[in-house]
Design a protein around this nucleic acid. Structure first.
Lengths: 237, 237
DNA sequence: CAGTGGTCTAGACCACGGG
DNA sequence: CCGTGGTCTAGACCACTGG
């Protein structure tokens, strides 16, 4: 007798072939079409949202969604733009703040630099098809890129800036990833709700040629927007 | 006026110090205590479930839950029992099926063996504090452990069996992990619902001493039961 | 402003698990 | 059997978005 699951199943089939971002029926329409109360219609749409098949926005409606594949491996360059484009979506990254600060001890230990040396602290928010998907902090020593704020006016991608400014080929030297319920500040940046599942990916990047350490990044990514795929070590064979 | 969030916040504080598995108030009690309808009380408890702070079981009630930390790194031995015990919970693993089959091509490629050589195919389900948490398939060449079914009658842990039977020190040679909505068959084994978030961890294990390839495992883990923490490569420094 | 999803009530019946 | 959570209705009002 579980009516809303039946409805959800049918809707799964109906939206299967639709392009990402397509608007689908609302709660009242579903209720009318299937002859159920609004609560059951709502439950069906929430089921789709739980399975990360649709996005729902108050005041706007319900839309099909797409999760981009974000592959993390020592072989893959650490670039948001590349990954998003590889999934057929449009990337965009916006600087929230950028300032030079003394490098904190934890970051200095990872970058193998003296604590307190000048370091860019960058807060950025990234989008896929104008949907907020990632937010975090990036630490770049001033000795690696002296004029980061200026470079960011021309380029979205930190990967591109590092390649152009230093001639380096950025590569993941070390990565740590986990998934956790998000806290309120980050939720606000990502337009999601406190406690929603999200990835925390921390990455130390170096130059594939020289091994010189370039930067340390900590980024939260919405689990419903990004399908993280992590590989430790090189693929075998 | 979001009443159910206020209630959820208060409950978060109240259950913060409780030991895992403690039974907490039900929907009717919450409704009575806060003077709201059952729908609002229910929404508050569902909010806690969404944040993976409680488990709810029809016919039983609502219970505080604990997520175990499952660290995956080249430095860490691939053992469920060890990881669960390290988090202070009780591990248990049950064999669902165990048979010798010709090794499939995909597995053979990873284990660098000829396709079709005899191979144990093992389906197992793992628990933390008697809560189903993981399920999957493990492939062990007969040439590595001839009498696997017999060994499993004495030991829960594949890690222990491999160490005892071959003198090897199992280690993760290569790992791939992702998180995805679960499909119906696996959901049934894990006692969760289709579409719930879960980890898929695939791991190729070898002997730390000789580098000999030992087995390939594919395991699903409930995201609300296991906090996977993945590191690529060795910790820096 | 109209239309969307978000919250909430009061009440009902069902499905499940344990004594 | 009882009590739990799961589903559902009918109806109401609110919060947010866009035009």
């Amino acid at each position: 007798m579980t009516r809303y699951r039946d409805i959800a199943e049918q809707l799964v089939g109906e939206i299967a072939g639709l392009p990402a971002g397509t608007r689908i029926e609302g709660e009242y329409e579903i209720a009318a079409r299937f002859g159920v109360g609004r609560a059951a219609a709502r439950a069906a749409l929430q089921e789709l949202e739980r399975r990360m098949l649709v996005r729902r926005v108050q005041g706007l409606g319900t839309f099909t969604s797409r999760r981009i594949d974000y592959r993390i491996s020592p072989a893959e360059a650490p670039s948001w733009s590349r990954m998003v484009r590889a999934s057929g979506a449009v990337p965009r990254t916006v600087v929230r703040s950028c300032s030079v600060v003394p490098m904190p001890a934890e970051v200095a230990a990872l970058l193998k630099m003296p604590e307190g040396v000048p370091c860019h602290r960058l807060h950025r928010r990234s989008f896929t098809d104008d949907v907020p998907a990632a937010y975090g902090t990036e630490w770049v020593p001033v000795s690696v890129v002296p004029e980061l704020a200026q470079a960011l006016r021309s380029f979205d991608s930190l990967d591109v800036i590092l390649r152009g400014s230093t001639g380096a080929l950025p590569r993941r030297a070390w990565t740590r990833a986990s998934m956790a319920p998000i806290d309120p500040e980050v939720a606000a940046e990502l337009g999601s709700r406190t406690g929603d599942p999200a990835w925390l990916v921390e990455s130390l990047n170096d130059d594939a040629g020289s091994g010189r350490l370039l930067c340390f990044t900590q980024r939260w990514m919405r689990a419903d927007a990004v399908r993280v795929l992590l590989e430790t070590g090189p693929p075998p064979g």
